[in-house]
Simulated assay, not measured.
Amino acid sequence: MGNRVAVYRKEHFNAAHRLHNPDWDDAQNFAVFGKCSLPNYHGHNYNMEVKVVGEPDPSTGYVIDMKVLSDIIHREVIDRFDHRNLNLDTAEFKHLNPTAENIVVVIYNLLRPHIDPTHELQVRLYETERNFVEFPA
């Protein structure tokens, strides 16, 4: 195995959501999700780190061109989710509860087809300064 290097790109987006299971009544939703289940939504300033691991290309010295990575993230994630209500404005969460866990998996799946398949990809999503998720774990 050669010289594998991890490169990271930080990005952020702002979005509203409501944690809610439509099969439950309001009382059960509140018992499970607390204030996050209130019907008028709430928002987060999401921060994310995208990690790509691979061997630098001998011609460029890059694992991935960071400008290209930024463009992919903007096109696939930021343009889709920034300043949106995830429950109402996005196809990805019409029928999927937009928990941090589900959001990070969706982001990974949006990015994966655009990253060299020989490279590892990992996404870390910060919902708050103290709460974050990572996929794959």
Rank of each mutant, 00 (worst) to 15 (best):
H95C: 08
V53E: 11
N97A: 13
S70E: 12
V52S: 01
T118Y: 05
D71P: 01
W24L: 07
K94F: 05
G61Q: 01
N102T: 13
F135C: 07
D116V: 00
N45G: 04
K10C: 00
H119Q: 09
S37C: 04
D79F: 12
R4H: 15
R18G: 01
N21M: 01
G61D: 03
I64E: 08
A15N: 03
T99Q: 12
A31P: 00
D25K: 00
F132L: 11
Y46D: 06
N45C: 07
I73V: 14
D82Q: 15
R112W: 06
A6D: 14
H83S: 15
V63I: 05
V133C: 04
G34D: 05
Q28A: 03
F13C: 01
V104K: 08
K35D: 11
D71W: 03
A6C: 06
Y8G: 03
A91N: 11
F30T: 07
Y46K: 03
V32W: 06
N109K: 11
I78R: 10
A16D: 00
T118V: 09
N87A: 15
R130P: 04
S70W: 09
K94L: 08
V105R: 11
Y126M: 07
R75E: 14
L110A: 14
D23S: 01
D26F: 01
A27I: 08
E49L: 10
P56Y: 02
H20T: 00
F135V: 11
E76S: 10
I72L: 04
R4V: 15
N97E: 15
N29H: 08
F81D: 13
D65T: 06
R9A: 00
G54L: 07
G54D: 07
N85T: 15
G54N: 07
I73K: 09
I115M: 01
V5R: 05
I115A: 02
P58E: 11
E120F: 09
D79A: 14
Y41N: 12
L38D: 14
I78E: 14
R4F: 15
N102C: 11
G34H: 03
V106M: 09
R75W: 13
Y126S: 06
